[in-house]
Each structure stands twice: as C-alpha cells, then as structure tokens.
Design a protein around this nucleic acid. Structure first.
Length: 427
RNA sequence: GUGGGCGUAGCUCAACUGGCAGAGCGUCGCGCUGUGGCCGCGAAGGUUGGGAGUUCAAGCCUCCUCGCUCACCCCA
C-alpha cells in the first residue's frame, strides 16, 4: 500500500461509498431544514481572489498567515486561493449581484468543500466539508437567535442532542477598541504568568489570549476585564436581545466571556456549538460556530450589510453519527436481481432491466458474469430476496423464473406478467 | 512549525532472543456443465513504506527518508 506511487494528498481523502450514505443523510436533513426556515441554496466558486480572504478574515489570523492554498493564474496577474471559509465569498456574491435590492434579509445556505493547510488530526482535515447559512442585510438580534436555532435543529435531527451552546459578544467598532486597550494593559501586567504564544498574541491579536487552553494563562485571566462590561449600549442591548430569544426558545446556553473567534470580521454575537466528548475522553469538540459580521461588507464595498451566519463541520458530524450507529441512513440496496444464462437470455436481461426501471423497481445484475452460481451468490451478498432468472429455454418461450431467495421456491411467469408478479412479492 | 505513536497481502492482524514471511476475512476457481447461503479443496495477492548500515543471517537492531496517526497551535 505505502509503495503505491500515488495516494491522496496529506489531510485529504476519498469520501468512499460507505461514507457517502452519511454525507447524503446530512445533506438531506440540512436541505429540508434550511428550506423550512426560508433559506435558499447558493454555490460559490472553490477559487476566489486571495485578497478577498486576507482583507476580510484579517491578515494576522492563522488562516491567512499560513493556512491558505494560494495559486497563480496562467497569466500570473491574480493570486487565487482555495476557499478557506464560506462567509466572505457569500458576501462577495451578495454585493456582486445586487442582493441589496431584494427584500431583506437575504437568507442563503451552502454545502461544500473548504481548504486549509493545517496539520491534520482527528476531525481536522486540509480539505473538509462544511455546511452553513447566512442571514444577510438584517441587524436585529432575532436573526442571530434563529441562526443558532436552525443549526441546533439540524444537529438534533441528525441524532446529536447533547449539544452545548456557548455565546458571547465581542462588541463592535465603537466599543471593542476600548476593551482591547484595557485587556492589553491587563495582559502586560500578567506577563510573568502567560505562555509564549500568549505573549505574542498580546501584540498581534489580544482577544485570542482569552481562549488559550494553557492552565496558567487561564488562571491569570481570572481577573481579566470582561468585554461585557465594555459593550456600548447598542451591543449590550443586542446581546440581551439574542439571549432573551434563546430563552424564549428554551435553548440552553452558556454565556462565555472568554469566547472569541479567529476571524476579524466578527462583531457582536459570536457562538460555538460543541458536544462533550464521549465517556473516556474529556473536553469537547466544536461542531459548529458562527456569529455576526456587521463590518464585513464595508471591507468589500460601500454597502452596509449587517449579517449573521453559522458554519458546521460535516466530517465531525459524520464521525459522531457513525459512532452512535445512526439509523436511517440512505440505503442504496436493490430489491430485485436479474440473473441470465446464455447469450440470448443475456440480451433479454437488458430488456427486463428496462422494464423494471420503467416500473420504478430498482434492479441489480451481473450481466458480465455467465455462471448462474456466481450470479445467485452475488444476489445473496446484496441481500436480495427476489431474483428474476432467465435462460435459453425461458427466453425462447417468453417466460421467466422468479425465485424467492428466502425459501428457494421458484415459479414460472410470463414475460408480460413480470412487473405485476414482482410488485406482489415485494409487498 | 513543535512533540509522541505507528508503517507486514485489498482489510484486520500474527511472526520467540535477529533464523525458511503467516492466519482470518475478502476476491477468484473447483467439488456442483441451469441454482446462492453451510462445508471441503485450491489459486491469486508481499522487494515487510523507501534507502543505507551492523551481521554468516534483518520484518525485528542503528541511522536517514517518506507516509500515516495523535496532541500542541488554531479551527469546522
């Protein structure tokens, strides 16, 4: 295996048939849920201008500093990036197509692959699948609550119920600056207790220090100023609004003053939806995250488009579904198998398959095999109960044999009565 | 980028102190020429991830390298 000349690139892998049944289940659930809440689907290109991301996500973030796959076009004029996230492209599309002239808010959802050049590990890939939704052009806190609700409902529908919502507000351009100053001042006073990374972050991205996992840092942060105390009136009442709506919906949440997000465009509401790791393991895994990004549109254009969105990691969800042996995944099994013996019967087999297709009956076959033994064996492995057998003798007389694989009983049926007889047996 | 673990057949894994590379499952064939499951027999499938070194002898020891994996960082 390892001597194979080619294998999938590091951190990227094939979604095999046995994985597809879970991916399809996820897709079907989110499609239905988003549709119910009035979201419409959008696909944006896999490649976007690299600047789109560096300008919106922020030049000092890990994503932009070291995780983007960047390539140049043949003309060499433009740097394109494999999209590392979905929000900026959607805002780009919104502005590009003049969605601001539509009734607001515009509600969109997506499902597709994203790319970040990180060191792969459990639940973390270089090409990974996300679905998400965006509510664009609305500043009211009720859409924040609804965004969280939709995401929770999807997870619940997929059998993931032990979720935990963490929420916080990181303020906006009016109040975040004041908080940052206060925080930096505090961090400098704690220099001795902070880890090396946090010392660096104090300069580059002080908010990030808040969610350092290092114990010493956490202790040091106990006394840190909390952003909630610095929120301006607007941000404060916005947060209050979101929380009130969540309470009305009976969505349990934890107000986590240390929750921040790694992307610069966030304002006000930020949230994460995690699930506690099972049994033996401690800690929790984040399945989805999101927040409000009122300033993103101003980076890209003149229009002011206050918006809120959420994104979730499909592989992480599938991992949980698999672990919990989620039932009801899409099963592609056929109900009927067509077996043939001899060249004439082989031709008839093709015709039989067409008849079954027109009748809406999914049929399997091994037309390339000649031995009946082989064909029945295959039908057995496919767990098929009804096998249509046609041989030279039957083909000449316009009849076929229907075999019940459970009992082994066979009956001869006229070609014309085939569909009727099969339908009877499938009941 | 920094640490730890692991690379043997398609898959899951054996192989004592360094001593003829094996099993189960799967695939294909035969027993049974037009009848599946169970059983029996057989075949295919390996430069033990790659390279160098030590040795009479290396899957096993040493070094290098590649890959995978887990964790940190960060994030979905």
């Amino acid at each position: 295996m390892a001597k194979l000349k080619f294998q999938s690139p590091s951190g990227m892998h094939d979604v095999l048939p046995q994985d597809q049944i879970y991916f399809q289940k996820v897709y079907r659930v989110i499609e239905k849920m988003f549709d119910f809440y009035g979201f419409e689907k959008i696909d944006t290109p896999i490649l976007e201008s690299a600047d789109l991301f560096s300008r919106t996500i922020g030049p000092n973030t890990d994503i932009v500093e070291k995780e983007m796959y960047i390539l140049r076009t043949r003309e060499g004029k433009e740097a394109l990036a494999l999209r590392p996230e979905g929000t900026a492209p959607i805002m780009r599309a919104y502005l590009e197509h003049g969605f601001n002239t539509f009734p607001q808010p515009v509600k969109l959802w997506y499902f597709g692959p994203f790319f970040r050049h990180e060191r792969p590990q459990a639940g973390r890939y270089r090409q990974f699948w996300q679905f998400g939704c965006e509510v664009l052009g609305e500043k009211e806190p009720i859409v924040d609550a609804q965004t969280i609700l939709v995401t929770l409902n999807i997870l619940s529908e997929l059998g993931i119920n032990n979720t935990l919502v963490k929420i916080n507000s990181i303020g906006d351009e009016n109040c975040r600056g004041d908080y940052k100053k206060a925080l930096v001042k505090f961090l400098k006073s704690q220099k001795a207790s902070l880890c090396r990374d946090c010392l660096r972050r104090t300069k580059t991205n002080p908010l990030r220090v808040l969610d350092c996992k290092n114990e010493k840092c956490r202790e040091a942060l106990n006394e840190a100023p909390q952003i909630i105390d610095f929120l301006c009136n607007e941000c404060h009442s916005h947060l209050k609004g979101v929380l009130e709506y969540l309470e009305e919906l009976k969505v349990p949440y934890i107000l986590d003053p240390f929750l921040v997000r790694g992307l610069d465009y966030y304002t006000k509401t930020v949230f994460e939806i995690g699930v506690s790791k099972n049994d033996e393991e401690e800690g929790e895994e984040v399945l989805a995250g999101g927040g409000r990004y009122d300033i993103l549109s101003k980076v890209l254009g003149k229009t002011n488009v206050p918006s809120c969105g959420a994104a979730a990691g499909v592989e992480r969800i599938v991992f949980l579904m698999r672990k919990r042996r989620m039932e009801g995944v899409y099963s592609p099994l056929s109900k009927v198998f067509i077996a043939q013996i001899g060249p004439l019967a082989k031709k008839k087999g093709l015709v039989i398959m067409e008849e079954l297709r027109k009748a809406g009956i999914k049929a399997a076959e091994s037309f390339s095999k000649d031995s009946l033994k082989m064909q029945l064996s295959r039908a057995n492995k496919l767990n098929i109960n009804v096998v249509v057998i046609i041989g030279q003798k039957e083909a000449l007389r316009d009849v076929l044999i229907i075999r019940d694989m459970e009992t082994g009983k066979q009956a001869e049926v006229g070609f014309k009565d085939m569909v009727k007889e099969i339908k009877k047996r499938l009941k």
